[in-house]
Amino acid sequence: MGRIAMLIWIVLLLVVIALGYIRLAPSDPAVWHRAPEVRGNVDLAGGVTRQVEVGPDGLARLDRIIRATPRTRVLAGTVPEGMVTYITRSMVFGFPDYTTVQQAGNALEIFARLRFGRSDLGVNRARVDQWLQALHKTG
C-alpha cells in the first residue's frame, strides 16, 4: 500500500509541475509574433487561418473586439504597426493560444494556433470565427 501511495504522490507532483509550466512558460515574441502565412481560410488540427476583406480599418476594429475577450492580452505589436499577436488562455488549465492578425491592404490575415498539444478541438476556429462575426456586425 505504501508504494502505491508514493506512486500516486509522484504522479500528482508531475501533473502539478506540468500545469505550472504550461501556465508560467514564457512567450517569446520573436517566436510567436511573425507575419502569418495565410493562403485563404484553412482549418488546421491545432489552429486556423483566415483571410477576410474588411477595409483599411479592419485591424483597429478587430483589435477592440479581441481585447474585450476574457483571458486575452497582447503579446506584441500594435495597430499602427499593422500587426498584433494576442495570447488567449483557457479558463481551467491556462493553455495559451496565439493569434496573429495582420492588416494587408483591405484584408486581414489571421493565424491562430495552439502552443501545447496536437489538437485544439476546434477552440481557435470557434474563437476566430466569433471575432469575425462580431467584426462584420460593427462594419
Score class of each variant (00 low, 15 high):
81 E>T: 04
63 D>Y: 13
41 N>T: 05
25 A>Q: 09
59 L>Q: 09
37 E>A: 06
58 G>K: 15
43 D>E: 11
8 I>W: 09
14 L>D: 05
24 L>M: 12
33 H>D: 15
92 V>N: 01
79 V>I: 02
11 V>H: 03
83 M>K: 14
10 I>M: 13
40 G>K: 05
83 M>I: 14
27 S>A: 08
49 T>E: 06
14 L>P: 11
70 P>K: 01
14 L>K: 01
49 T>F: 01
65 I>C: 10
8 I>Y: 07
44 L>T: 02
85 T>S: 09
26 P>F: 01
20 G>L: 04
94 G>R: 01
92 V>E: 00
54 V>I: 07
35 A>M: 13
83 M>T: 08
57 D>Q: 08
35 A>H: 03
17 I>H: 00
74 V>K: 02
66 I>G: 14
60 A>G: 07
25 A>F: 13
49 T>I: 05
71 R>S: 11
28 D>Q: 04
58 G>N: 06
16 V>S: 12
9 W>D: 10
93 F>Y: 03
80 P>A: 10
10 I>R: 08
39 R>H: 12
87 I>R: 06
15 V>A: 07
65 I>D: 12
76 A>S: 11
94 G>T: 04
71 R>I: 02
11 V>C: 15
73 R>F: 03
27 S>N: 06
28 D>C: 03
37 E>I: 03
38 V>R: 05
88 T>F: 00
59 L>N: 08
55 G>F: 13
73 R>Q: 15
48 V>R: 08
29 P>E: 06
72 T>G: 13
18 A>M: 05
84 V>W: 03
80 P>T: 10
31 V>K: 07
64 R>F: 03
18 A>L: 05
44 L>V: 02
81 E>F: 10
58 G>L: 08
92 V>F: 07
91 M>I: 09
54 V>L: 11
26 P>Y: 01
71 R>D: 15
37 E>P: 00
37 E>R: 11
55 G>I: 07
74 V>S: 05
47 G>M: 07
26 P>W: 00
35 A>Q: 10
45 A>V: 00
26 P>Q: 04
19 L>V: 14
83 M>A: 14
87 I>D: 11
55 G>C: 14
39 R>L: 14
89 R>Q: 08
78 T>V: 05
64 R>G: 07
81 E>P: 01
69 T>Y: 01
64 R>D: 09
89 R>N: 10
51 Q>I: 00
29 P>K: 04
61 R>M: 12
76 A>N: 04
40 G>R: 13
75 L>E: 04
21 Y>K: 03
47 G>K: 07
26 P>G: 07
64 R>V: 01
50 R>S: 04
16 V>E: 02
15 V>Q: 04
67 R>F: 01
79 V>D: 15
18 A>W: 01
27 S>K: 04
22 I>V: 14
31 V>H: 10
60 A>N: 11
30 A>S: 11
69 T>N: 12
11 V>Q: 01
65 I>M: 15
68 A>M: 03
55 G>R: 09
14 L>Q: 08
17 I>C: 11
93 F>S: 05
41 N>D: 15
40 G>P: 00
49 T>H: 13
57 D>I: 01
9 W>T: 08
32 W>F: 14
83 M>N: 13
11 V>L: 11
68 A>N: 09
40 G>L: 03
72 T>A: 13
24 L>I: 07
